[in-house]
Amino acid sequence: MIVEHLMELSKETLIKIDEVIPKYPEKRSAALMVIHLVQDELGSISDESCSWIADKLSLQPINIKELITFYPMLRETPWGKTHVRVCRTLPCALRGSYGTCKILEDKLGVKEGYVRDDGEYSIEFMECLADCGEGPVVMVGEHTYENIEGKNAEKFAKLLLDKELNSSKEFNSYEETLVVAPPVSKRTNKKS
């Protein structure tokens, strides 16, 4: 195929793609999973990627394009290097998520829905992230941070800007607390 040599996917991704397709009774069902794999590596799905994926699944490019343009998490242009998702929906809003988003916008220097000019940061308002009891919820990449509000949000944004969120240990993500299951008191970002 003409498109094949244009795609720059790593060997690992290609292997993963070849593994995921036969898991489904019908090839087309693998579309979302293949798109995820390509997007994880390339950051977005170009027209060229659409054609390549379609080819892989014996579909037409439009069958992939119609997915990219429908699903909120599929992208035609990439987000920033660090992508920040802020939950916007009512339970989080009641806990101040609109204020949180404003703080993040100000500190990171980029408006919600956009990528900063240098490509470092992007912010996205999301609909309910299914963690409403600990809102406002903010995701950085694949990690979920809880109760990011007010002063907490200021501190959070600063650490994020200084690229010290992980090393500071001041904020533990939902995912991190699972692995080690620390006692409740270890969580500094928990309201009393």
Binding site: S29, L32, I35, L59, N63, L67, M73, M126, E127
Partner: peptide, 19 residues
């Protein structure tokens, strides 16, 4: 991929069919 309507069972099925 981030769409609420995929929670509706027939929407979910369409999505699982790759549509």
């Amino acid at each position: 991929a981030g769409a609420y309507i995929c929670g509706e069972e027939t929407g979910l099925i369409e999505s699982l069919e790759g549509k």
